[in-house]
Design a protein around this nucleic acid. Structure first.
Lengths: 156, 156
DNA sequence: CTAAACTCGTCAACAAAGTTGTCGGAACGG
DNA sequence: CCGTTCCGACAACTTTGTTGACGAGTTTAG
């Protein structure tokens, strides 16, 4: 009988799968008028949500400091995906909101993700893809996504 | 019948799976005497290999510039995982080699990865884990690992 | 055999994203 | 009403990446 695959292949494949999807998403997003969006930005825009949020709250959701969240918002503002306004009910808060362009990128992303999933379903079969998703759900936390990838990966 | 899961869940789970494994690997590595190793370092040490290599070649393998590879080597050298020597047959080249400590970290990593995989096998069953690995192989390139994650994810 | 072309490592300048620490203004609560 | 807490901003720094330039060593073409 065959030996077990070496343990290091699993994380490699997981990451490669993630990267393949994200790369294809952004290639398609670039074709659809969003060439400046980086992988991280999609997660940030998602974390901001339709209601808008503040830098501190955003930092909490993403698992990074409020300063880091502030810098990212600044970059996204330069690109035209979010805008900052003041809260009439609390002069301390500045609310970050998605612009029309920001919402558009999110809507397109959702459709592209669905298309990419359909591509996997065609290769693997819907049944096995569902099994794969179920298995991954069984071994990963339900937790929110952490955005501190550069620091996490690269090290501090 | 149930609707398809939204497409964005798949990449999320893939990344979460990757992150769970890598986090557990490094927690265990820290317990076993390697608290300073960061996720990236393991891939770099693996890319250096038992034969050693040069900064330029390392950069090629990792998909980053030779300067970036050189800086990473420098950091790994400070931590005692690699050492640099000269090539008697080509005075331009400086060969980066693993130290005993570097090799030790790789050996331990391999065993920990196997243990973590065994944990997944216990949760999912060996059959489904093998199916998961086979499916991931079917949808990911056979390519080498790219180390430019911070830049890739964060954006340039 | 020499001269051009390429390769390797390093230095310098810069960008992006993260960290901690500090601080002033605004809101809240005893 | 005054102290505490919360928010946003600024500053200084670290890490890791990027180009561009350059000197030294090796290869190759003429």
């Amino acid at each position: 009988m065959a030996a077990d695959p070496p343990g290091f292949e699993l994380p490699l494949r997981l990451f490669l799968g993630f990267r393949v999807i994200i790369d294809e998403l952004h290639a398609e997003l670039a074709r659809q008028g969003h060439p400046d969006l980086r992988p991280m930005h999609g997660f940030v825009l998602q974390a901001i949500g339709p209601e808008g949020t503040t830098a501190v709250e955003l930092g909490r959701r993403l698992g990074v400091s409020k300063q880091a969240a502030g810098k990212t918002v600044e970059a996204l503002e330069r690109l035209g995906y979010v805008e900052r306004g003041s809260d009439p009910r609390d002069a301390r808060r500045k609310i970050v909101r998605l612009t029309g362009r920001g919402v558009d990128s999110l809507v397109r992303s959702a459709r592209i993700f669905d298309d990419l999933r359909a591509g996997w379903a065609k290769t693997l079969g819907e049944d096995r893809l569902r099994a794969l998703e179920a298995d991954l759900r069984a071994v990963t936390p339900a937790d929110a996504f952490r955005l501190d990838v550069p620091g996490w990966f690269g090290g501090y």
